[in-house]
Design a protein around this nucleic acid. Structure first.
Lengths: 222, 222
DNA sequence: TTTCGATAAATTATAGATAATTCTGTCGAC
DNA sequence: GTCGACAGAATTATCTATAATTTATCGAAA
């Protein structure tokens, strides 16, 4: 899947750490100690520090000089911010991708949606959702835009996993189907409008904290 | 201005290199050799490598494993891409900033525009232009969005300096004035429309290459 | 309780060494 | 003259060891 063969050690470490942060395996705010991580990966601190810089750029970690690196914290304001950025940029990407969308591509996107609808856990749903969005946006052929959207998707996934850590209820994604239908009949504007609204939809769910109390958790669900 | 005291060496190096790349002092495609840069800054190669990772994240350099780091090349397609991303994101930022704009802020933005109109060289024009955009967008209070816009501005500046390396003709920026006027009278939609169009306007200019031939150069002028 | 200071720990950075890879330029074959 | 093979130089990516600086901890004194 992801080629680990040609990657540099620093890249490999950053990918593993990114996965852990997104999955919520490491608490927001907790410290990433370079020597511990170095010894875990059997590496020295040099590639670990480079991995930290990559995580920082993705917005998954924050680094304070001389105080080390921490997993980035987030709040409702940031969930909203990422949702709005995704809405703007995905609409832009789809506008450019639309003329290049073929029936084959739209069929692949529909497969992804169906896989999402059948998902029984939040992880496989997220993967299917990400595939859907990637599939219809990639033909825009704007690498910088797609890379930025990827980082925002990573943030979205993090919020999602934090809110729906365990439970997940199957549901069919009407928006995805509406977007595909609009694209198939050449109604790009309708697809753009639906996509923009879809990505800004923020799910809300009461969640038990470790202390036993409940709080509201929010996540981008689309 | 920019605090170099508290910064780490890696950050300091990346800032200097970023300035050089944006100013066009280093040719696109040319290699950044870590040992050379390390000795130039009187540092070791470790912070230099971290600086490279930061430049990579900003899109100013590209790194290929085992083949080193090069200054990122760019073409008309990327100029267009950055322009469109800026248009989308700056419109989003302004929509959120608008309710928080005060007369004092708008006056500051007008000062920046006036400074730009008086600029006799492209560097001071770019600085004034950047100040204008920053001033009206910052009150949106969306840090991730603003950071992304900053990186896009850096790319824009790079394109601009590459196209208008020496010559620059003074001109008054009607779009800026129109945006400010619309904001002052509370017509946010008009301001958003004008800003979106303004940032997508791509200037075009024949430029003499080193070989003596002329080619068309393009840049985001807004 | 708060403040102070000694101690411990972690980050940041240096220096030097090494394996692997890429670049460069020469030489010979066609 | 062009092409490819080859040797040597240069460069990257990494490790190890170590120093300097800063932050964190923790107990004692005011």
């Amino acid at each position: 899947m992801t080629q680990t063969k040609d990657d540099t050690i620093a890249v490999r470490i950053s990918k593993v750490l990114a996965d852990r942060i997104i999955a919520g395996e490491i608490e927001p705010g907790s410290r990433l100690r370079q020597d511990h991580i170095a010894s875990e990966f059997g590496a020295s601190h040099v590639p670990v520090r480079e991995a930290f810089r990559r995580l920082e750029a993705q917005g998954l970690a924050i680094s304070e000089p001389r105080r080390g690196v921490r997993v980035a914290a987030f709040d409702l304001a940031e969930v909203r911010e990422v949702a709005e950025m995704r809405a703007s940029l995905e609409v832009l990407a789809l506008r450019h991708a639309a003329p290049h969308l073929t029936k084959a591509i739209l069929d692949l996107a529909e497969d992804a949606t169906r896989a999402g609808d059948k998902s029984r856990d939040v992880h496989s749903w997220e993967e299917a959702n990400r595939t859907f969005h990637r599939t219809i946006l990639a033909p825009c052929a704007m690498p910088r835009l797609l890379a930025t959207i990827d980082d925002l998707h990573a943030a979205s996934a993090r919020f999602l996993f934090a809110a729906w850590r365990t439970e997940w209820e199957t549901r069919t994604d009407m928006d995805h189907l509406a977007i595909l239908a609009a694209l198939r009949q050449g109604n790009v504007d309708a697809a753009l409008t639906t996509l923009g609204r879809h990505v800004q939809w923020i799910g809300q769910k009461p969640v038990r904290t470790a202390a036993g109390t409940t709080r509201e958790a929010f996540a981008i669900v689309g």
